[in-house]
Design a protein around this nucleic acid. Structure first.
Lengths: 346, 346
DNA sequence: TTGTAAGCGTTATCAT
DNA sequence: ATGATAACGCTTACAA
């Protein structure tokens, strides 16, 4: 036999029912916090449950309920640190619940992505999924979840859905602020390393950047914008393009930290000193931001808190005891000022 | 009702049996690749399965088999990038199987860690778990898995268990080689930033370092060793201690990349130039190694390959078709030479 | 408020 | 080689 059986000595609902002198259904009601139950009965059953150390079998529940106690994390191919932060926040939200986290990387862009995801969700009968950007920006994915009755919460850089299906950050305003900070420092030739085309986060951040420059009456020639794909190498290449300009930009805003690391790398390669010859601002505040030299001024993206909140939204309303906590849907990003920004040198 | 029911239109084993004109048990035999089956029957059933798009319900299987199709990833609190690499390797090994990955962070050091883990494994009836270092070094955890009939594979920096329960890297030799490289460059005052006490990886790497120095007849005063906890800040602090020495070390081997980033940070803060004033070698070859300035010479730790192999070991022997692939148990680390090492300046 | 009986979709036992 | 029947441990209908 490929799958060897295994005896388990764990108590079942039958044991509890027998010892408590009630039917299994009554025990089931206790487990599921049914409101119509005599307090005395409930107490007696709970005592037996405690004494036996009984824990309901999740597999049996999943079968009967046609629904597993698993929350999926669906992510595309973003930054490793971002994924870790999301996992951490999610697990925090799921802590001390009956839910576990299963991780599902998908290849966005693959034509079979949607089908693969459908099979996954249908087979595993997930309770819900957390959709990370940029997968979360795909409306077809959200519709798929709806169709097959799987709860979902989308994480995004703008309001993508109804509040109970979404947690968002205010990227545009945060970037506008960051850019205003550069302007206030005296910078006028400011380059942008944009995120990849088709990403909502890329769009929002770019618009924040453009708004700030527009408000200050600073022209933004096309040449001052270079597009990257959120990866280090693309930041390096984009910075090379911007730094080749004459005159050179005195500051660069990069749409994420990983590309900002590429900017600093490119500057160092040319013998430019940051921030003396070039100021740099990133976005995310991943650990490397504080660890690189010079420490990177960046926008702190509260992605872990967002994920925690998203997880709580996903499982909200199933805890018979308390009313579901109203989790916020909007999270504010803040500018973290470090050494990578200085006034432009004369 | 807290848990709303949901109708599913998916075909079941009964549909397959009815249409194929066989009993469900026969279908079950086809699914599980039972050897005692008429080829003709199998073919007919497989056709129906294909036509219907039937997929066995994992929840029902889990209940009947008393075993879930989930592989757990148990990790303590190490480097985020390392965890991501492990996840990636694991998922690669699990790709196109019926298994999913469940992530379980645990607080090693907590007195309830073992109990918590037991509850998790027993409740979820995991098929198997991948134990990341340093949790993997805890023999009590391995014994726990054995006791409750959960497969396990331990990842480590040395042979921790029998080959089918372990994947290991040769940290000691790799570090010896890295240190020899520093010596060959002409360094004689070489500092070590060790990993935390109680970690096997820390011990192995330290021994490799000491062996290389011993072989070369270079004295290693206690003051040239500083202990860190694998985190950036600890590397920064340890480097500060080493760089306060008079005379200063001309090179530092850091037991991982994150602490090495701290070393470079500390050097920059003092106005020292790497590699002119100080050569640095790290361990891991996480992405930041190539991204920092200067690019970090480091030991490439093939942790993703190890995790992939570990996953394959976990599910080996259940695929009735092919014989289980013999996965390697030992993985070799290699030195990656980048710009952070140079001969000591006169 | 509680219990009885019938699933949920699969696999194990023991026939034939 | 295949099938009937009883698990697996829980939940929902429907009674009582």
């Amino acid at each position: 036999m490929p799958y060897p059986m295994r005896k388990t000595g764990q108590p079942t609902i039958n044991d509890v029912a027998r010892i408590a002198g009630v039917s299994k259904k009554t025990v089931s009601r206790v487990i599921n916090r049914s409101p119509l139950l005599n307090d005395e009965t409930r107490k007696r059953v709970e005592e037996v449950i405690g004494g036996l150390g009984y824990i309901p079998n999740p597999q049996a529940r999943a079968l009967a309920l046609r629904r597993n106690f698993l929350i999926g994390l669906v992510h595309g191919n973003p930054n490793a640190q971002t994924v870790m932060n999301v996992q951490q926040g999610m697990l925090e939200g799921l802590q001390d619940t009956e839910f576990e986290m299963v991780v599902r990387p998908v290849d966005r862009g693959s034509p079979t992505m949607l089908d693969g995801l459908r099979h996954f969700l249908e087979r595993q009968r997930l309770f819900g999924v957390l959709l990370m950007p940029p997968i979360s920006e795909n409306d077809a994915v959200a519709k798929l979840c709806d169709d097959i009755g799987c709860r979902y919460v989308r994480m995004g850089s703008a309001a993508l859905d109804k509040p109970d299906h979404m947690v968002a950050s205010n990227d545009r305003e945060a970037v506008r602020e960051a850019t205003q900070y550069l302007i206030a420092q005296g910078h006028r030739r400011i380059g942008l390393i944009a995120g990849p085309h088709g990403f909502r986060s890329a769009l929002e951040r770019r618009m924040g950047f453009e708004e700030a420059l527009g408000d200050a009456g600073i022209a933004l020639p096309r040449s001052m914008i270079a597009e990257g794909n959120y990866r280090f190498e693309s930041g390096l290449a984009a910075a090379d393009r911007l730094l080749d300009l004459v005159p050179r930009p005195t500051a660069i805003f990069s749409s994420n930290d990983e590309m900002a690391a590429g900017v600093i790398h490119a500057a160092c390669q040319r013998g430019l000193s940051v921030p003396r010859d070039l100021s740099v601002i990133g976005f995310d505040d991943t650990p490397i931001a504080a660890h690189m030299w010079p420490p990177l001024t960046t926008v702190r993206w509260p992605i872990a808190s967002m994920a925690r909140s998203a997880a709580l939204k996903l499982i909200a309303g199933i805890d018979g005891e308390a009313d579901p906590v109203e989790e916020p849907s909007l999270f504010l990003s803040t500018l973290i000022r470090r050494a990578s920004v200085a006034p432009p040198s004369a």
